[in-house]
């Protein structure tokens, strides 16, 4: 009877308040304090008995993610940080692998598996140097690559192999690469001439310095007739550089830079069949000693007519201060 009476008195406006009221009653009771402490010690004892000891601490990535989860949301750690870490790791491994491949490709020759990598690396180098340091630096770099192409031709010719046709094919490919590289240098020179004539002089001088060595290197490889065209292209490049240097210098009124024609005719020596057992670098040194010691530029000597000679007789307007002065007194 009491229950109905009090239920009627009850207000239902705030149902939520009624629910909150249950807290602390027997329906949603607080635990007994004694039971709490005894249960706690029972729980921890059970954990100590049943849990295996942690093995010797080995730091793993799981610990890293767990530690990071302390300072940032766990979802961020597993959805952003961990994938980014994996990406950086893969990128680093890929880069290291590429560097290793490039290093291994440095000694490769036309026809080898890694030769493409070597060429790709050189093209990349040229592009980067040109972007950072300009055409002049990239031309010098290309000249270095021309030397490499010549070395490759020499190595292929010197390589002993039973299959002559395959060897000849590789040599031809190497010569084609050489020609292509020389044409690239020539194109560079023309571009520099068009854009910056002053730089063209320096580029031409750099070409002059190296092209003779390259010519001699090619000669020393004892390549077959297919290298004749290569020698011709190199000779043409030499002429272009000489012309570029001359025309630019004459425009500026300076002394032309002369290049002694130390290289022998490419046509006669390219077809030489004498055996060469030493490498091209050993042959170049004695041959080019005389060439390299010859200054490429003659020192600028002022012409005599430009320096006026001291007159033997002084003119009427000139006073000879070296002679004693005679003073005549007037009467």
């Amino acid at each position: 009877m009491h229950s109905k009476h009090y239920l009627k008195k009850m207000k239902f406006n705030d149902v939520t308040q009624s629910i909150r009221m249950l807290k602390g009653t027997e329906h949603a009771a607080t635990p007994d304090t004694q039971w709490l402490s005894s249960n706690r010690s029972r729980l921890l004892t059970h954990i100590d008995r049943t849990t295996e000891e942690m093995p010797t601490r080995v730091f793993t990535l799981v610990h890293l993610w767990s530690a990071l989860s302390l300072i940032m949301p766990q979802r961020t750690v597993y959805a952003v940080v961990r994938p980014a870490f994996i990406f950086v790791l893969c990128f680093g491994l890929g880069t290291a692998g590429w560097i290793t491949t490039v290093s291994a490709s440095l000694e490769s020759l036309p026809g080898d598996a890694l030769y493409g990598v070597k060429l790709a690396t050189e093209h990349t180098q040229v592009a980067v140097v040109e972007a950072v340091q300009g055409k002049r630096a990239s031309t010098e770099l290309r000249l270095t690559f021309v030397s490499r192409r010549v070395d490759e031709v020499g190595k292929l010719v010197a390589a002993g192999t039973a299959d002559n046709s395959a060897k000849q094919e590789r040599v031809n490919q190497a010569v084609e690469n050489l020609k292509s590289e020389v044409r690239g240098v020539s194109d560079n020179l023309n571009e520099v001439k068009a854009s910056n004539p002053m730089d063209a002089v320096h580029v031409a001088q750099a070409i002059d310095r190296k092209v003779d060595v390259i010519q001699l290197s090619l000669i020393s490889t004892n390549a077959t007739t297919s290298s004749t065209e290569a020698s011709a292209v190199i000779a043409q490049l030499k002429q272009e550089s000489g012309a570029a240097a001359t025309s630019t210098s004459s425009m500026n009124g300076g002394a032309p830079s002369s290049t002694p024609a130390a290289a022998s005719s490419p046509n006669s020596t390219a077809t030489s069949t004498t055996a060469a057992t030493t490498s091209s670098t050993k042959i170049i040194a004695p041959l080019t000693r005389g060439v390299l010691e010859t200054p490429l530029e003659q020192p600028i000597v002022p012409k005599k007519e430009l320096i006026p000679e001291r007159p033997t007789e002084l003119g009427p307007d000139v006073v000879d201060v070296s002679a004693p002065i005679s003073i005549q007194m007037r009467d």
């Binding site: 229950s3 009090y6 009850m10 009624s18 009653t25």
Partner: peptide, 11 residues
Amino acid sequence: LDINLEASAVA
């Protein structure tokens, strides 16, 4: 008693 009855009703 009032509170308990009300709580009982809600429960």
